[in-house]
Every structure is written in structure tokens, then in C-alpha cells.
Nucleic acid binder design. Structure first.
Lengths: 193, 193
DNA sequence: TGTTGAACTAAACGGACCGTTTCGTTATGT
DNA sequence: ACATAACGAAACGGTCCGTTTAGTTCAACA
């Protein structure tokens, strides 16, 4: 593809931003191209023109690398709507999220992270205690606002949020992210009652 | 553990039930012991005293083997309650299901199957078109009955079912299957409105 | 100015699995 | 009697893991 043969030597006793960028770019590119199934540190290193030890130095396991390459754009890419009703907000946000997952390789990152969490305790911990809280903070705002508007009681915020999250996971994990899924709006209706 | 050195030779031009049983038993045992992370066909073959080609002959991929070792007891183990309200039925069934997943190695089978579906197209197809329809048939009955009782409209049956499924997946995949999860009944309430 | 130390890549390591092939054996069905 | 098919053992080539060794490049510091 690109002219890759240029080798990056050390730039001294500090982390090389070029190497970091090259690794992330290669990882994202590889995921977009082959999906999680074809994803390996070995191949990332090859494409990035980086040494495996370098990768292992900065990202001790796959989960950390996934988290690093996810998240970069998500917050920017998906605005949190505020259209006056949870129903409208959820509908828009869910559609945006699914489109993002379909088109941005981020869906594959996400699927990979969940899969990885089934084989690695570190990945599971990272998923539960780092990734999820971080990533759920902004969609949670929609539920908080709805409760403030009186659409439901404040104690229900996190329960409703979790039901919505489970719904999304089910779809991403079974590879059903078509935006026009007819039952989408029906399910969101149910979540807003 | 047990006296394993007895070798099962071929019993002629037909499938050996002993081998089949030994493979399933070894697979279940291995999953119970090490979880999905430590699960490999290689190790199953070792423990079962079986040849890898034999395993690959009868179960062309891991997903098929998972499906075979799941399901054996689930229907028997989890009765579908009929207590007059979806709320009561779901509460009981979900608690039973989570206990089953916690205690029976079946949870690990299930997690493994979902993880496998993220790396293998065959596994994904098996999950979507074989495992899920089969396994969801009996819990679905609870929702059908509730609709018949007039708790909600019949068109909502599968949407509510899917929300419930997503909720369960989220918990099994993040390793949160404690029976007394306080939010469990609150979420089930939400699903019944 | 010279030395120390950390970050870099390349190469190779032992080990685990994958999925397949080859082989000799065993018993069935015809 | 003979083709057929399933069996286990062993080994194949291959991929990837996570680590180690070795030689380099450069910044910081004395």
C-alpha cells in the first residue's frame, strides 16, 4: 500500500510518537480489513513496521490496545442528542451508534474486546471497570435528563441504561446492526415506558 | 484422575458411542475446570483419549462441540414456570438460568460460544440460526402466555423477549451472575410494563 | 565530553494450538 | 473374503503467543 520500508529507529530515551501512531493506525486498519478474527499482534507489528517488544512494552495485552484504538473518535463521532424525549434521543443515538459500529471498524474493536474478555481476566476487568464506565458516561446523560423531565423515577436510570446496553450488545454480537431494523423503534418504545 | 489408559480402538465401521461420550465428558470437564480460556480441541482429545481427527470428523468446529455439550441438560434443568404473571415467571426463570450458568459449566459453554462467534463465521451462523432459536423456544413461551393473558400486545412478544435476552447476555458476558443482584427484579419490572 | 540509560527494531526462542495427513489396526456389513 | 469405515497415534506445516537477546540510536546528565 503505502511506502513502508522506512524504518523508525529509537529517538532516544522517550516514547516515539511516530511508533505509537503507526501501531494504532495499523491495528485499526487491520481490524477494518480482516475483522477481529484476523487480528494478531504479530500482524500489527508487521504492518506498523514496529517490533513486537515495543508493542508489548506499551500495551500489555490486546484489550489495552483495543481500548486505545477505540474511543479515539467515538465521543467526537456520536453527539448526544437532546430532543426533549428519551424516545427521540434513544432512537437517534442508537441509530448513530449502530452506523458507527458498522462503518468505523469500531464495531469490530468492540466485538473483539468483548470476545477477548471471555478468554482473559485482564480484558474482562478492563472492559468492566475502564471501558464500560468511560463509554457509557455520555449515553447515560440521555437517561438522566429524561428522569429530570419526570419521564421516570431517578432510581430507574441505571436499570434502563443497562437494558439498553444489553440490547445493543446482543445486536453487535450477533452481527445485526442494520439501521432500519424494523423492531428497533418498537424496542426503544418499550425501554421508554 | 480416573483410570484413563484404556484405549478405545475402533469398533468397526460405525461411530463409537463410547468415544462420543468420552469427548463430550472431557469437554465439559475441561470447561468447568479451566473455563473457555483454557479450552482447546487438543486438550479435549488428550483427556478423552481420543484422536483429534476423530473429533474433527464428528464436530467440524468448536461451535458444534459447544452446542453438543450445552443443551444436554438445560431443558431438563430449567422448568418454564407458569405462575400467572410475566413478572413472576421471568423472575423465577432468570434466577434459575443464572444459577444454571453459574453452577453447571454451561455458562462457560455459552460464553465460549459467543466468543467463538466473534472469530468464526460458522460459529456465528450456528449461534444465530441453530442455538438461539432452539434455546429460546421455551422461555419464549412465558412471553406468549403473558400476551395471551393480555399483559401486552402479541406484536411485542419478540421485542420483549429480545430485550430480556440482551439483558442476560450482558450479565453472563461481564461475569455478573449473582442471583441476588439487587437490580434484577427492578429490571424485570421494566420488561413487564 | 563522555557515560548512562531508556526506547527502538530485528531475530529467534520455546510453547501452544490449529486443522490435516498418513498410517496401521479393528470390526462391520455384504 | 473383502471392501468399507471408524479408531488412535504421530507427525505435518502453519500461526500466534509472550519473551529474550543483541545491537542501534539518541536524550539527559555529570
Amino acid at each position: 500500500m503505502e511506502p513502508k520500508p522506512k524504518r523508525r529507529a529509537s529517538i532516544g530515551a522517550r516514547r516515539s510518537p511516530e511508533t505509537e501512531a503507526a501501531v494504532k493506525a495499523a491495528a485499526r486498519e487491520l481490524l477494518a480489513e480482516k475483522g477481529y478474527a484476523g487480528f494478531s499482534i504479530e500482524e500489527v507489528a508487521r504492518r506498523a513496521g514496529a517490533g513486537k517488544p515495543t508493542i508489548y512494552r506499551w500495551w500489555p495485552n490486546k484489550a489495552e490496545l483495543f481500548i486505545a484504538i477505540y474511543g479515539v473518535e467515538k465521543d467526537a463521532a456520536i453527539p448526544v442528542p437532546d430532543e426533549g424525549s428519551l424516545r427521540a434521543d434513544l432512537l437517534r443515538y442508537t441509530r448513530d451508534l449502530w452506523r458507527f459500529w458498522r462503518e468505523d471498524a469500531a464495531g469490530r474493536v468492540f466485538r473483539g474486546l468483548i470476545a477477548e474478555a471471555q478468554t482473559s481476566a485482564e480484558a474482562l476487568a478492563a472492559l468492566r471497570f475502564k471501558f464500560m464506565p468511560e463509554r457509557l458516561a455520555s449515553p447515560r446523560r440521555m437517561f438522566v435528563r429524561a428522569a429530570e423531565r419526570g419521564e421516570f423515577s431517578p432510581e430507574e436510570i441505571d436499570d434502563r441504561l443497562e437494558l439498553w446496553v444489553g440490547f445493543n450488545w446482543l445486536h453487535v454480537l450477533t452481527d445485526r446492526l442494520s439501521e432500519d431494523e424494523p423492531s428497533l423503534s418498537r424496542k426503544i418504545d418499550l425501554l421508554c415506558r
